[in-house]
């Protein structure tokens, strides 16, 4: 496989895929599951992000992208794209476009995705740069709520039952989603990636999600999380600024761009799998995949559909980021098979 990106491009793409879309509802899911204990529980689990990536870096050459494995991951990523798009469409319908026909929103998103994924590799790789200033703006406006935070909301801790702990562990998996892409992206990345780079990336990822979680927990009271499913957007909605009536709407559009770039990252991975296995006319295959994609998104762009997709994605993450890599790597090491060094 020919390297097509530098480590910094790879980490940016991975960051956008891991953070895009679900960061707005992750705090609610986590807090509903583990209550006030959610912040420390997620912090401890988040510390495992670095060793997980370190293991991927250490053994990625033992993870051979056979046709069967590629097909499995291709299906999983296709499903992840359906889930992310359906959640994006649902949220847009609720906040921004309640009267716009759902199919129009889906079509427009799909066309953007198709266009980006059939473009040159550099388009998908560099698209994330657009988000960098917008992420900064997003974080600054979230910080406007700092005077309304109630720090006692973070305490007391240690009142979780074992059931809450399990539910919290399950909910905490969502932000980890997409890290299996490292196994593929690493092949496409030139140069050496040391522990320091991995640690910096994991640190940024952890700080980002801890910020979202603590901000939400300190802003809303615990009972409100049973009603508010997107606390980050709701928090922005409650901020009063002089230049816009609805701050949430501006950030919904930023979040939409974030989600689309995140989807482009996953679509890029699927296109690369086709490239690895020399699939003929991959652009036509991508266009053909839109045929099941659109109705699947349409069908699941509902409250219950998105919730079900979220649960399946969490299980999927456990299989495709933990179990399957472990089995494949152990099997290949046992058999002595590995991808040739670049």
């Amino acid at each position: 496989m020919k390297p097509v990106m530098a480590p910094v491009q790879m980490f940016l793409l991975l960051f956008l895929v891991q953070t895009g879309t679900f960061f707005i509802n992750f705090p609610s899911l986590m807090i509903k599951a583990a209550g006030r204990d959610s912040w420390w529980l997620f912090f401890i689990l988040g510390l495992l992000h670095f060793p997980h990536l370190w293991l991927f870096e250490r053994f990625y050459r033992d993870f051979k992208w056979t046709k069967f494995i590629s097909l499995l991951y291709g299906i999983y990523w296709f499903f992840a794209m359906v889930s992310i798009t359906s959640y994006t469409v649902y949220t847009l319908n609720v906040y921004a476009f309640p009267k716009t026909p759902t199919v129009v929103v889906i079509l427009l998103i799909t066309l953007v995705l198709l266009s980006a994924s059939t473009s040159k590799t550099s388009t998908s790789v560099n698209l994330g740069v657009l988000m960098l200033p917008l992420i900064g703006v997003f974080l600054i406006f979230l910080m406007m709520s700092i005077n309304n935070l109630e720090w006692t909301n973070l305490f007391p801790v240690g009142h979780m039952t074992s059931k809450d702990l399990f539910r919290g562990f399950f909910a905490a998996q969502l932000p980890f989603g997409g890290m299996e892409l490292y196994l593929l992206f690493r092949y496409l990345t030139a140069g050496k990636i040391g522990n320091a780079k991995l640690m910096i990336y994991s640190g940024i990822w952890l700080v980002f999600f801890m910020f979202m979680l603590i901000l939400s927990l300190a802003f809303f009271s615990l009972k409100e999380f049973t009603m508010i499913s997107e606390p980050i957007i709701y928090l922005l909605k409650s901020q009063e600024v002089t230049f816009a009536e609805r701050l949430d709407l501006i950030f919904i559009y930023i979040w939409l761009a974030w989600s689309i770039i995140s989807l482009c990252g996953i679509a890029f991975a699927i296109m690369r799998l086709m490239n690895i296995h020399r699939v003929k006319k991959p652009n036509y295959v991508a266009a053909f995949l839109c045929i099941p994609y659109i109705p699947l998104v349409w069908y699941t762009a509902t409250k219950t559909g998105t919730e079900l997709n979220g649960r399946i994605l969490t299980y999927g993450h456990m299989v495709f980021a933990f179990i399957l890599p472990l089995i494949v790597i152990l099997f290949n090491r046992y058999k002595g098979r590995k991808e040739p060094a670049k």
Partner: peptide, 14 residues
């Protein structure tokens, strides 16, 4: 208190 604050306090424990 605005509408949002009112909601938060109503549901707050303490």
């Amino acid at each position: 208190y605005n509408v949002q604050d009112m909601g938060s306090i109503m549901f707050a424990q303490g």
